[in-house]
């Protein structure tokens, strides 16, 4: 059985990181944070939490890797196809009225949703007037997103999602295959800017018409979810759309009153 981690160990680690690197994990959701720690202990063959805490404390390079391992980067193209379908059918007609469109993938991970949205906007004939910002706290995943290179074994799932999302072509029209990899058509991201950005500490000066933040808030506790939704509120004008994960809800956040529910089923909100 795996190494057990108790709450005191977690507090000690959180305090060490806070004191040394001014980064606060204190508002991360406990269960998933604990699981990430178990994973790291296993990955680096630490024998207990003390060993990990010491390593984090005295090895800055290791700490950077630790940060990357803590974040969860599972994603898919057109994950939850019904959301993308709803977006295509109901949000796109609203966006089409704008003279230019700005979309922020606020935790873009390895970029699967960046390509998904670019494909959707291209099929809607809106790609040329849309500017995308794709940001993440982890530079390694941003590099993957920028390269558009994905394992071929994942593509059948992505294709299946694409078809269910109401795609008008075939996903294979948007990538070339070489060996074990799919190479996305990079013209899809010619209006995308990639940037490292920390949702917790970062300040965003730009304004957006759509913010996607899907399956990120689940890793935070409610007070931190509050802060992030509040930060988003400052980066949008009335009528802008906020999309969260299919089982996330902003209903318990203080700033929820600043949004109306555009699609309850698909977790699309609209700024009042």
């Amino acid at each position: 059985m795996e190494i057990e981690i108790d709450i005191q160990d977690i507090r000690k680690l959180v305090n060490t990181v806070k004191a040394k690197y001014a980064f606060d994990f204190g508002e991360y959701a406990l269960s998933s944070f604990k699981r990430r720690l178990v994973r790291i202990l296993d990955l680096y063959k630490f024998k207990d939490m003390n060993e990990l805490i010491n390593k984090v404390n005295f090895d800055k390079v290791f700490y950077e890797n630790f940060l990357k391992e803590i974040t969860v980067n599972t994603t898919e193209m057109f994950r939850d196809p019904s959301m993308w379908k709803k977006f295509r059918e109901t949000v796109v007609p609203e966006l089409a009225k704008l003279s230019s469109i700005r979309i922020w993938h606020s935790a873009c991970s390895s970029g699967e949703e960046v390509y998904s949205m670019a494909i959707l906007m291209k099929e809607a004939g809106l790609l040329e007037k849309t500017k995308f910002l794709a940001s993440d706290i982890n530079e390694d995943v941003i590099a993957t997103a920028r390269s558009g290179k994905y394992p071929l074994r994942n593509m059948p799932l992505h294709s299946d999602n694409y078809d269910k999302s109401g795609g008008t072509k075939k996903l294979t029209d948007y990538y070339k295959t070489n060996g074990d990899y799919a190479y996305m058509d990079l013209s899809l991201i010619h209006t995308t800017v990639f940037k490292k950005f920390d949702l917790v500490l970062g300040k965003q000066e730009q304004k957006f018409d759509v913010i996607l933040c899907r399956n990120v808030l689940i890793y935070f506790n409610l007070p931190l979810q509050d802060k992030i939704i509040e930060m988003f509120s400052g980066t949008v004008d009335t009528g802008a759309f906020l999309v969260v994960g299919s089982k996330e809800s902003i209903a318990w956040c203080k700033s929820a009153t600043k949004y109306s529910t555009f699609s309850f089923e698909e977790k699309i909100y609209r700024k009042l």
Binding site: A29, L30, S31, S32, R36, V72, T74, T75, I218, G245
Partner: peptide, 13 residues
């Protein structure tokens, strides 16, 4: 996941 404080949390890990 079942969290302390009587709430759920979900994860895509």
């Amino acid at each position: 996941y079942i969290e302390p404080g009587n709430t759920f949390s979900l994860s895509t890990e």
